[in-house]
Simulated scan of single mutants.
Amino acid sequence: MPTATYAGTEVPVTDEGFFTDPAYWTEQMAPEIARESGIDPLTAEHWKVIEFMRSEYAEKGTGPTVRALGRTSGVSIKDLYRLFPKGPAKLAAKIAGIPKPRGCI
């Protein structure tokens, strides 16, 4: 299984770089994952989405789709694409340290 090192901690990830166990994630890792994905710096808006993604995963066992994220996170779909340009649900999930949401390609 592949691993990645963030904030000095080695974590197991999928071939696409998603955490296999969200329990390994820490807030200190998020800026490194974001930079690796072309987002720097993380703003308060980014953190709102990241925290929402983690909360949804904890509650439902999967991250929300882009539509659900736009409807329920308090951030519009247009803003989601501005914040996470290469696929909001997928990229936000990666930065939030949760598995890739169902339905993301």
Rank of each mutant, 00 (worst) to 15 (best):
13 V>P: 12
49 V>I: 14
52 F>I: 04
3 T>H: 14
71 R>C: 00
19 F>H: 10
37 S>M: 15
28 Q>V: 05
76 S>F: 08
29 M>N: 09
42 L>Y: 01
99 P>L: 07
62 T>S: 07
10 E>W: 11
94 K>M: 08
12 P>E: 14
29 M>K: 08
18 F>L: 06
101 P>C: 05
42 L>E: 00
31 P>Q: 11
67 R>I: 03
79 D>P: 00
61 G>Q: 05
25 W>Y: 14
12 P>V: 11
71 R>Q: 13
49 V>F: 12
40 D>Y: 14
50 I>V: 14
83 L>I: 04
104 C>R: 06
47 W>I: 02
80 L>H: 01
68 A>G: 04
6 Y>G: 02
64 P>F: 02
62 T>K: 06
78 K>R: 13
77 I>T: 09
61 G>I: 01
28 Q>L: 14
84 F>V: 08
55 S>I: 03
73 S>N: 06
39 I>R: 07
87 G>K: 01
61 G>T: 06
99 P>V: 03
65 T>K: 05
54 R>F: 07
37 S>K: 12
1 M>K: 04
68 A>V: 02
36 E>G: 06
103 G>T: 08
6 Y>E: 07
81 Y>T: 08
66 V>P: 06
77 I>G: 11
99 P>C: 07
45 E>T: 02
34 A>M: 03
85 P>D: 09
19 F>V: 02
17 G>R: 12
68 A>K: 02
55 S>F: 03
89 A>K: 00
36 E>M: 07
102 R>P: 14
71 R>P: 04
102 R>I: 06
77 I>M: 07
76 S>V: 04
99 P>A: 07
91 L>W: 03
69 L>Y: 01
7 A>T: 09
39 I>P: 09
70 G>Y: 01
102 R>S: 11
43 T>C: 01
70 G>I: 01
100 K>N: 11
4 A>M: 15
21 D>I: 12
84 F>C: 07
4 A>D: 15
55 S>L: 01
102 R>L: 12
101 P>L: 09
33 I>C: 14
40 D>H: 11
47 W>L: 01
57 Y>N: 12
46 H>Y: 01
6 Y>D: 03
101 P>F: 05
62 T>D: 03
94 K>Q: 10
61 G>N: 09
88 P>F: 05
97 G>K: 05
38 G>E: 14
92 A>P: 06
82 R>L: 06
85 P>V: 06
81 Y>W: 13
55 S>N: 05
23 A>C: 06
39 I>H: 03
68 A>P: 02
94 K>T: 01
3 T>G: 07
54 R>D: 14
54 R>W: 11
4 A>E: 15
96 A>L: 10
